[in-house]
Write a protein that binds this DNA or RNA. Structure first.
Lengths: 345, 345
DNA sequence: AAAGAGTATGTGTTCGAACACATTTTTATC
DNA sequence: GATAAAAATGTGTTCGAACACATACTCTTT
C-alpha cells in the first residue's frame, strides 16, 4: 500500500502520456485545463512524491551554495561551522550540490561587505550568511533579492521586515534557560549580567538574552535576587570587573551573554570565584577547561555546527525537493555541564 | 579538477568496455589479471567514487529493515521512536529502503520472543531492536548471526561478547551528569537513588547509572551528601516512599533512574516536595508537567527518537554506501529544564 | 582442423524523471 | 472546406551504474 508511484503510473491512471504528467508537474508547456485538473487530482490522491534519485541523476544542474561567516581563525566560536558545512557537502555531493565558504573579519564591517560582494559576484544559487552587522546585512539582503538569489541567515536574527529566513537560537528563551539554571544554583544575592562585545549590533541582540533572563526572575513571586547588567569591553575587562566587585559585596552569580566567559573568569581571583555561580555560552576550549575545573557551572551551547547544518539543509532541500524555506528555525538550547560536554564538541 | 568520473570514463581510459570495468569493480565474473590490474590502477589513480544516485536508481534491490521495540501504548517512553522511524523512512524511501515496525509487551519476555520470531520469519535484511530481556536477546542475536542478518541494538546495552552494535546513552556518564546537577542544586543532606522497575535485567543497567552517580560524589573531596539507593516496585510506591521518608529526616535530593519520576512525585506531599531537589529521566508528558510546575528540577533526555534514527541510519548506510557499523554509538546526554524542554518534544 | 568447453570481453536494456523533439488535435482565417 | 497557426499531447533520449545477454577469443580433445 505504500507502493512507490512513478510518473508512468500517473500517466496510465490519467489516461495521458508521461510527457503531459511532466508538464503538469512543472507547469511547463501547455496543458488543457481539463487534463490538468484530472492529473492534479490523481497526484494529490496518491500523494505523489517524485523520486529524487532519478530526478537528480537526470538533471545535471549544479547547485552552488555560498556560506559567509566570520573567519574562525579570528574568533574560535565559528570553527564548528566548518563541520556542518563538510557534513552537508558529503551528504549531498552526489546530488550535485557544491558549497563554497567565504570569511570576513568580525571586527570589520568593510571586510563583511567585501566578502559579500565577492560572494555575489560569483552568482551562486543560494547564500547562507551571518547577518553580523545589521546595517550592512540589510544592504546585502537587498542585493540578493534583486538578483533573485535564495538565501538564509543564521546565528543572530536581523530585524528587517523583508521576508527572511533565520536558523539559530531563540535568544529570549536562551536567557530564560540560563535564568532557570541560575535560580537553582544560587541563593540570595546579586546577579550580574555581563555583555562583552564592542559591536553595537551584537549588543542589540544580547539584550534579548538579558530580557529573557530578567523576565524569568520577574515572573517569580519571591525576588531573592537583584539583577544588574553591564556592557564591558574585553580590553578593559580587568578594570571593569574589579570595580563591579568592589561596588557590590554580595554578588552570587554571573551570567555572561557571550562566549567570552573565560576572559572574565581569568581576571577574577579564586577566592571570589569560590562563592560565585557562573553561566556562560559556547563550548570554546577555554570555556570547557573552566567547566572541568568547576569554575564555571554551566555553558549554553548555541551549536554553531547545527545552525549551519540546518540552515544549509533548508537551502539544499529547497532546490532538491522544492521544500519551502521556513521563516525561523530555532535550534535547541543545549545545557552543558562538566559531565556531558564531550558529546557536543 | 574535482570532476566527476563515470565508469564510461574509466572504460575509455583503460581501453576496455564498461562491462569489464563493472566486473572489476564488483569482482563479478572473470577478468584477465592483466586487465584487472590496469583498471584497478586507473580506479585508484582518479579515486573513483561511483555515483550512488545512479547506483540506487538502477539497483532494484529493496532493503528491508525491521525495528523491534516495546509497544508505545504500553509504555509511553517508546513513542518518540516512531518519529525516528518515520524520518528515516521518508529520507530513504527513494533509496528503496522499507522499514517495518514490530512491538512487544515490555513486561512479558515471551511476547518479546514471539515478536522476534515473527521478525526473523520475514527474513529482513537487517534488524534494529531493543535487547530488553538480556537472556532472550542473546538467543535472538544467535539466530540473527546464524541467518546472516545484519543487526543493531539500541536503548540499553547488552553484555555479550558476540560482536554487537549499540546505539544509546552511556549509562555511567548519564549517572554522572545527574550527579553533577544534583551537587549544584542541593546543600547538605541525604540523596536517595530510586530504581523503579520490576524487570531484573533493566535493573542491571540502572546500576550503571547509580555507579556513575556515586562515583561523581566519591571523587569529590568533601562528602556533604550521603547517598542511599532503593529498588522499588511501582505497585507499592506509596508505601515504600512513605517508609523511606519516615526513616530519614534529612533527605534533600531524589534521583530517579527511570522515566517514572511522575509516579514518585505523585505520592509525595507538597510540603515535603518543597524542600526536595529531584532529577528524573525522559520527557513524558507527566514529567514535563512537573518540570513546568517546578516540582522536578531536571530531566535527562535519553532521546529515543535520536537513538532509533541513528541506529537505523547506521544500518541503512551499511547497505547503501557500505559504511562500517560501529560497535558503540553513544548519543548525547541532554539536560532539560523548565525552559528548554519544548525543543526536545 | 573441427567441435566443444571454458574464459574473456562487449552490447543493450533498465531504473524514474527531465526535456527536446515529433506528432496529433483544435482553432482561426480566407 | 482548405490551410496555416496555435495548442495539446505523445515519443524518444539521456543521466550513471547494474546486470543479463551476446559475442569473441583461447585452449583442449578427437
Amino acid at each position: 500500500m505504500n507502493k512507490k508511484h512513478t510518473i508512468k503510473d500517473i500517466a496510465k491512471l490519467a489516461g495521458v502520456s508521461t510527457g503531459t504528467v511532466d508538464r503538469v508537474l512543472h507547469n511547463r508547456g501547455r496543458v488543457s485545463e481539463e487534463v490538468k485538473t484530472k492529473v492534479n487530482a490523481i497526484l494529490k490522491e496518491i500523494d505523489f512524491q517524485p523520486n529524487i534519485i532519478a530526478r537528480s541523476l537526470k538533471s545535471n544542474k549544479i547547485i552552488n551554495i555560498a556560506v559567509l561567516l566570520p573567519d574562525p581563525k579570528l574568533d574560535a566560536f565559528w570553527s564548528p561551522c566548518l563541520k556542518g558545512i563538510k557534513k552537508i557537502q558529503k551528504e549531498y555531493k552526489s546530488f550535485n550540490v557544491i558549497l563554497k565558504t567565504y570569511y570576513f573579519d568580525p571586527l570589520d564591517n568593510q571586510s563583511f561587505l567585501n566578502s559579500s560582494d565577492l560572494v555575489i559576484s560569483e552568482k551562486p544559487d543560494a547564500v547562507l550568511f551571518t547577518p553580523f552587522f545589521s546595517k550592512e546585512s540589510k544592504q546585502i539582503l537587498h542585493q540578493l533579492n534583486e538578483l533573485n538569489i535564495v538565501y538564509g541567515t543564521f546565528n543572530n536574527p536581523i530585524f528587517s521586515n523583508a521576508i527572511s529566513n533565520f536558523t539559530g537560537p531563540d535568544l529570549y528563551k536562551s536567557g530564560r534557560v540560563a535564568a532557570r539554571l541560575m535560580d537553582l544554583i544560587t541563593k540570595d544575592g546579586k546577579i550580574i549580567i555581563l555583555h562583552i562585545d564592542e559591536n553595537y549590533e551584537n549588543a542589540t541582540y544580547m539584550q534579548k538574552k538579558e530580557l529573557g533572563f530578567r523576565d524569568y526572575f520577574n515572573m517569580k513571586d519571591e525576588s531573592k535576587n537583584k539583577i544588574l547588567a553591564y556592557n564591558l569591553k574585553h580590553t578593559e575587562l580587568e578594570k571593569s570587573i574589579g570595580s563591579i566587585f568592589s561596588e557590590h559585596s554580595d554578588i552570587c552569580g554571573l551570567f555572561i551573554t557571550t562566549s567570552k566567559a573565560h576572559q572574565v573568569i581569568n581576571v577574577i581571583s579564586d577566592d571570589i570565584l569560590k562563592h560565585l555561580s557562573i553561566i556562560g555560552y559556547d563550548l570554546l576550549e577555554d570555556n570547557i577547561k573552566l567547566l572541568k575545573s568547576n569554575k564555571l557551572q554551566f555553558l549554553i551551547n548555541q551549536n554553531p555546527e547545527k545552525m549551519v547544518y540546518n540552515g544549509l539543509l533548508q537551502l539544499v532541500e529547497f532546490f532538491l525537493i522544492k521544500k519551502d524555506i521556513p521563516q525561523t528555525n530555532y535550534i535547541p538550547i543545549e545545557i552543558i555541564n562538566s559531565e556531558n560536554f564531550e558529546y557536543y564538541v
